[in-house]
Amino acid sequence: MKHELELKLQALLDGELTGRETEEIAALLERDAEASALLGELRNTRTALRGNELEIKLPESREFYWSKIEREITRLEQAPATAPASAWWAALRRRYVATLGTVGVSAALMLTAVVHFRELSSDTFDVENLLGETTALTFRSEANKMSLVWIYDNEQPEAEPDGEFDDDDTIPQT
């Protein structure tokens, strides 16, 4: 039997055929035993199923089941109220705090440099660390466009910078 005919038999059973198609299939059923048997099987299955779904009970207590629903509803209802504020703050932080931090540190460094620069008349200077345990010496050569910092322990004999900078280098000594 063609699948198209099988589907038409089923459509007849389900009341999904037009009037003309219904007449055609009814006429065919009178002379086709195979089609008639198939329609009988489909009808039995349909009749057995209709209204005979197994009743299934929720396997959780009403209170426990509801508590999860209620919690989710509450969470979702609170989310729109708090989301804009937190989103706003997060965006602000992302956009400005890092920039402001960088600007702040840069400004502090620049201020320190300016203060020290004013104290110096030549293009070379040293800075003494105020911490008792260590001393730092800074050399700046405008000619070579470079700075050098020595940090050493006061308890130890003063180390001489060695190797790369000799006395005859262009870095003036203080």
């Binding site: 589907l7 099987e41 489909l42 299955t45 349909r46």
Partner: peptide, 8 residues
């Protein structure tokens, strides 16, 4: 159609 046939 095939679901019904299988059920039968």
């Amino acid at each position: 159609f095939y679901a019904r046939r299988k059920m039968a």
